[in-house]
């Protein structure tokens, strides 16, 4: 297994921490992992993206130009990265604020209304955990319990009472993710 993931969206959506949580989940499951953020003066308030690679083997390049999975959380990111998904790969997009849907026919496409769901759950901070749940449903490369274990490592102890809420968000994401285009 070698999963190369790009996650992109607005700063503040939890883009970077999503990648970190997946990587920590990978560490817990004895995988090799690399997390690489886009960093630069344009980050604050602008678009943010990170690459997360989870693999059974040693990872070579942390910098990629084609991905197995793209998780796109806004329109500019979707426009920019849709074409970078490898043929046969997968794209997940957040439906909120999307005017132009992805058009590729040679990849699996999923949509997830994580933002609306997070409002229903009365906590928009768990938005990114809902998306992680959706991803894990579509690509079950990690066990949910390992992702939760990873979360315990990422979160400072004073936030550990929020872990059950995060787990609930992951389960919710697994429920609400929708298939838009599925390759045979």
């Amino acid at each position: 297994m070698n999963e190369e993931i790009i996650i992109a969206g607005f700063g503040g959506q939890g883009v970077l921490s999503m990648g970190q949580i997946l990587c920590y989940g990978g560490v817990m499951q004895n995988k090799e992992v690399t997390w690489m953020p886009s960093y630069g003066p344009e980050m604050r308030g602008g678009t943010a993206n990170c690459t997360a690679i989870i693999s059974d083997e040693k990872i070579s390049s942390p910098v990629l130009n084609a991905y197995d999975t793209a998780i796109m959380l806004n329109q500019p990111s979707l426009d920019k990265f849709e074409e970078t998904v490898k043929p046969g790969g997968m794209l997940i997009y957040e439906t909120n604020g999307i005017i132009r849907k992805p058009e590729r026919k040679d990849i699996d496409i999923y949509s997830i209304g994580a933002y609306d769901e997070s409002i229903k759950m009365k906590n928009t901070k768990i938005f990114n955990m809902i998306v992680i749940g959706g991803f894990l449903k579509a690509r079950p490369i990690l066990d949910v319990e390992n992702v939760i274990k990873g979360l315990e490592k990422v979160l400072p102890e004073r936030y550990h009472h929020l872990i059950p809420l995060n787990e609930e968000a992951i389960r919710k994401g697994m429920e609400i993710i929708k298939v838009e285009n599925k390759l045979k």
């Binding site: 990587c23 992992v33 690399t34 997390w35 690489m36 953020p37």
Partner: peptide, 10 residues
């Protein structure tokens, strides 16, 4: 360099 400085690994 900035890549190794900023990237996270096990």
């Amino acid at each position: 360099d900035g890549i190794i400085g900023q990237m996270m690994e096990k």
